[in-house]
């Protein structure tokens, strides 16, 4: 299948629900990140690489799984860019590109206990099922 970096970057931007062009390159996201040293590409790089359309490397990187989704970057970003949501959008893109349904309804009863909020199931299916 044809892979267009720019188009994918646009898709990631749309999925993230934020505007990475608002970034003023202050790096406060990376300064706040508890997983910084685990990541090959850091939060501020995710933002600038998505703006540039340079996403192929991000999709292939292990960094996407290192983000803890702690939202420190989202809370502290002075420009309202929400880097964690951009990283999440990259992560979801890789899953969707694999072309498989990651989550089957058949698996649900086995993994659900009363601790899991219903909302988590809803978002899990939104993300991981094509």
């Amino acid at each position: 299948m044809h892979f267009d970096q720019k188009e994918t970057a646009n898709l990631i931007t749309r999925m993230s629900g934020t505007d990475p062009k608002k970034c003023m390159k202050c790096g406060k996201c990376s300064a706040s990140c508890p997983s910084f040293d685990e990541m090959e590409y850091h939060p501020h790089q995710f933002v600038s690489m998505v703006v540039k359309g340079d996403v192929e490397r991000l999709l292939a990187s292990k960094s996407i799984t290192k983000c803890l989704t702690c939202f420190a970057c989202v809370q502290r970003c002075p420009r309202g860019v929400e880097p964690a949501n951009i990283i999440e959008a990259v992560r979801v893109t890789t899953l969707r590109q694999q072309g498989t349904c990651y989550l089957s309804p058949d698996d649900v009863p086995a993994i659900v206990d009363d601790q899991i909020p219903q909302q988590a199931l809803v978002s899990a299916f939104r993300k991981y099922r094509k």
Binding site: K25, C26, G27, K28, S30, A31, S32, C33, H44, R76
Partner: peptide, 23 residues
């Protein structure tokens, strides 16, 4: 680069920031 947080530890302050040039 910007600072992410400042906290107190063992009687001194700790600054956690980023150096964007050195990444």
């Amino acid at each position: 680069g910007q600072v992410g947080k400042v906290y107190e530890e063992d009687g001194h302050l700790v600054v956690q920031g980023v150096d964007l040039i050195a990444n």
